[in-house]
């Protein structure tokens, strides 16, 4: 059975106001869902809802053909605005920590050492430098390298292209493409066009309705 992430009439409130309501979508494996819309339209909120950090006010979110023992959030790699990078640990130590924290058992761990993840994002020469010395773009790449540490089927990326140079953007596109070809799902909030094979777009508007 195909894995599918589906939302049904999803609504989220912030205070008295709906961020969005009546939102439905479905993404199957191999597909990327691109979230677009103006600032404040709820792109980050939707990603946090999928990650299980925010509880929706109404509606339902399900992951078909997932692991029944795990929550939807536990199927996801979440890379938000902030990279979850510790300045006083080296680049390699940062990755080693996330690998051993996120991998439940050895099956989850992808073959190859952390070096492979670093290499993919061009951070190999920097692996023994404390992460505090990295530039914004390099920190961003380190945050993204987490995607390659353990196998998780759903990737949630919030503005992944911010502060990346053209070469790194190309790397991310390639990594994303490989993930999708391998039967993964990606939900990406972004303002710029993305170059991956199979994608559908979800346009979020500005929430104007008042919550009852």
């Amino acid at each position: 059975m195909q894995m599918q992430l589906a939302a049904d009439e999803l609504a989220v409130t912030r205070g008295e106001r709906f961020v969005f309501s009546g939102l439905s979508f479905a993404v199957s494996e191999g597909e990327a869902l691109i979230l677009t819309g103006p600032n404040g339209s709820g792109k980050t909120t939707l990603i946090r809802v999928i990650a299980g950090l925010i509880r929706p006010a109404a509606g339902e979110l399900r992951l078909e053909a997932g692991d029944a023992e795990r929550t939807i959030g536990q199927h996801c790699h979440y890379v938000g605005h902030r990279g979850a990078v510790k300045s006083s640990m080296t680049v390699l130590e940062n990755l080693e920590f996330w690998r051993s924290f996120l991998a439940k058992d050895s099956i989850d761990r992808l073959p190859g050492r952390d070096g492979a993840a670093l290499d993919a994002f061009g951070l190999l020469e920097l692996s023994h430098i404390p992460a505090g010395y990295l530039s914004d773009g390099q920190k961003r790449r380190l945050g993204l390298a987490r995607l390659l540490l353990t196998r998780r089927r759903v990737w949630l990326l919030d503005e992944p292209y911010a502060s990346l140079d053209a070469a790194s953007q190309g790397i991310l596109d390639a990594v994303l493409d490989r993930h999708l070809r391998g039967g993964g799902i990606a939900v990406i909030a972004t303002h710029q066009p993305i170059d991956v094979s199979s994608q559908r777009e979800l346009q979020l508007g500005v929430g104007e309705a008042e919550a009852g």
């Binding site: 946090r48 990650a51 959030g73 536990q74 996801c76 902030r82 979850a84 300045s87 996120l102 439940k104």
Partner: peptide
Amino acid sequence: DEDGSLEVLATGDA
């Protein structure tokens, strides 16, 4: 919380 680690910790298997 500052560097976003908390959110990733929350999506862990633990």
